[in-house]
Design a protein around this nucleic acid. Structure first.
Length: 446
DNA sequence: TCTGGGGTCCTAGGACCC
DNA sequence: TCTGGGGTCCTAGGACCC
C-alpha cells in the first residue's frame, strides 16, 4: 500500500497562491499572542521552526519570517484537487487529513519494489502537474511501514520498503516514530531503557501491555515487529463536531464566558446542520489559567438541532466546570450524532433571544475567536469592520486579486498576485479605497 | 518557549439490566 | 437473603494524530 503526504502543505499552499513567497520562510498559524505554528515551509524549518511550536518562539527563531493565518477553505479545495488525482489510481482511499492518505491501487498488489517505485513517482508527477504542489510517497506492507516510508522520503521523494526488509528499516528508528507513541509513551518506555523500535520488539508482549495498557501495548508491540493488519478503509461520517477558542487574555467574568459559550455553540451547531445531523450529547471543555482542562457532558434522550436548547445546556454545564482562576479556553462539542429525519427534529437556524446575545457582539470580543463566523464569507464586501489584516484576500477594481501584506495609519499594502500570475507588484492604498473589497481565498488559485 | 483547533480512541468507575 | 458476572450506557479525563 501507498501513503501520500503533501510536503509542508499549509505553507506550500501559501507559496503556491502567493508567488512572492516562494523560497521565503513562511509560518502559517495563530497570529495572536497564544498562537501556535500549524505549518512551516522548509525555509523556516532550517531555523528549527516546526508545527505545534508557539508562534512567538518561531518568530524569534526565523529571521524575516512571513506569518500568515491559515486559509482552511483554500486548503480544502486544493486537497480535493490532489485527491481527485489520487482517485484515478482506483482502489480504496483512506484520507487521514487534508494532506495525507493511504491508497491501495489494485495494480500494485504483488508488484515488485521497482514497479511500485515508478508508480509512486508517476503519482507525484501528476499531482505536481495538476496542482503545483509536491508530495512524498511511501510504500510498504502495511500502514505503519507506508507512513514511515513517506516520512523517510520527505521532502519531494519516493521510498519503497521491500518485503523482507521491514525489520531492518524499523529497528533503528526511535520509538516515537511509531503510530501511537507520543511524549508520554515515549517517556514510559525510556524509563525501562527502551528507545528504539528494535528494543521495543525485543520485549515480551506482557511487559509492553503492562507499561502501556492492553490495547496500545498489544498494538505497538505488533507494529514494532512489523505486524500491521489494519486495512485501508474509507472514513465514515464524523462522530462529533466541535468548536473551541483560546482567548488572547483569560476571561474573568461570567458574562464573557456565557457569550463565548454561545458563540462556540453557534459554530458547532452550524456545522451540525451542514452535515445534516442532530446531536444527543453536549460536552463543554473549560481550560483555566492553570492550563488544567475540565469537561462536563450531558446526554439527552433524543437528538436535537435546537440551537437555543443546545446553548442552554452548554451554559449550564460550563457553570459546573469553572476553574478557580481565569478562563483560558472554551469549547463546545456535539456528539451522539444522528441523521436527520424529515420533520422529526427542530429544524431551526433561528436562535431565541437568549442564544442571540452571544452572537450579538462577537466581533473581535474574544480575540482569537474564529472570524469567518462574523462575516458570512463576505467576498465582495467592503473592508472588514476589524480593519485589514495581514493575509486577507482582497480584490481591486483595477489591480485584480491580491493579499494584504500589512496595514496601519489609514493605509494598506497589497501584493497583487495569484497562482497563475507569477510574483506581482505591491501597492500601498488608502485603507478606505472604494475600489478595494474582501475576496474569496479560493480565487488566489487562478 | 509556555503551550491551537479539530478530531479519534482508550480507560475506569458507576448505574442499570438480566 | 445474599451474591455472581456480563453487557451496555454514561461521564470524566487523557493520550494521540495532523
Amino acid at each position: 500500500m501507498l501513503h501520500l503526504d503533501l510536503d509542508a502543505f499549509f505553507a506550500a499552499a501559501e507559496q503556491l497562491t502567493r508567488p512572492t513567497l516562494a523560497g521565503r520562510p513562511v509560518l502559517v498559524g495563530g497570529t495572536g499572542p497564544r498562537g501556535v505554528v500549524a505549518g512551516a515551509s522548509y525555509e523556516s524549518r532550517v531555523y528549527g521552526a516546526h508545527s505545534a511550536m508557539p508562534m512567538s518562539r518561531a518568530r524569534r527563531l526565523v529571521p524575516g519570517a512571513v506569518v500568515l493565518p491559515p486559509r482552511i477553505e483554500l486548503y480544502r479545495v486544493l486537497s480535493d484537487l490532489v485527491f481527485a488525482v489520487v482517485r484515478e489510481l482506483g482502489g480504496v482511499i483512506e484520507q487521514v487529513a487534508l494532506d495525507e492518505a493511504f491508497v491501495e491501487p489494485p495494480e500494485l498488489v504483488g508488484a515488485s519494489a521497482a514497479v511500485v517505485g515508478r508508480a509512486g513517482e508517476a503519482l507525484r508527477q501528476r499531482i505536481r502537474e495538476s496542482t503545483g504542489l509536491t508530495g512524498s510517497v511511501g510504500a510498504g506492507s502495511g500502514k505503519q511501514l507506508a507512513k514511515i516510508a513517506s516520512t523517510l522520503a520527505k521532502p519531494n521523494g519516493v521510498r519503497v520498503v521491500p518485503h523482507g526488509t521491514e525489520r531492518e528499516v524499523l529497528s533503528p528508528l526511535p520509538v516515537r516514530k511509531l503510530w501511537g507513541v507520543g511524549p508520554v509513551a515515549e517517556a514510559t518506555l525510556r524509563r525501562v531503557g527502551v528507545q528504539t523500535v528494535g528494543a521495543l520488539a525485543a520485549l515480551p508482549v506482557a511487559e509492553v501491555t503492562g507499561l502501556l495498557g492492553p490495547a496500545l501495548g498489544t498494538e505497538l508491540h505488533g507494529l514494532a515487529l512489523g505486524v500491521d493488519r489494519r486495512p485501508v478503509a474509507e472514513r465514515g461520517a464524523a462522530k462529533q463536531v466541535s468548536a473551541e477558542t483560546t482567548f488572547d487574555a483569560d476571561l474573568s467574568d461570567l458574562d464573557s464566558v456565557h457569550r463565548a459559550v454561545a458563540e462556540m455553540t453557534v459554530h458547532a451547531h452550524r456545522r451540525l446542520l451542514a452535515a445534516g445531523r442532530g446531536a444527543r450529547t453536549v460536552t463543554v471543555k473549560v481550560r483555566g489559567a492553570d492550563f488544567a482542562t475540565r469537561s462536563r457532558s450531558e446526554t439527552a434522550a433524543t437528538s436535537t438541532t435546537d440551537l437555543a436548547a443546545l446553548t442552554r445546556t452548554a451554559r449550564r454545564l460550563t457553570e459546573g466546570a469553572l476553574p478557580p482562576s481565569g478562563v483560558r479556553l472554551i469549547g463546545v462539542a456535539l456528539s451522539g450524532l444522528t441523521d436527520l429525519v424529515q420533520g422529526r427534529l427542530f429544524d431551526t437556524g433561528e436562535p431565541d433571544a437568549e442564544a442571540m446575545d452571544g452572537r450579538s457582539d462577537c466581533t473581535g470580543s474574544t480575540g482569537t475567536g474564529p472570524p469567518p463566523a462574523v462575516r458570512p464569507l463576505g467576498a465582495g464586501s467592503r473592508a472588514p469592520s476589524r480593519g485589514w489584516r495581514a493575509g486577507d484576500d482582497v480584490r481591486h477594481v483595477w489591480f485584480g486579486h491580491g493579499w494584504v501584506q500589512g496595514s496601519g495609519h489609514g493605509r494598506v499594502t497589497v501584493r497583487f498576485e495569484t497562482r497563475g500570475s507569477g510574483p506581482g507588484p505591491a501597492r500601498t492604498l488608502a485603507a478606505d479605497d472604494p475600489g478595494l473589497v474582501v475576496a474569496d481565498p479560493v480565487a488566489s488559485l487562478d
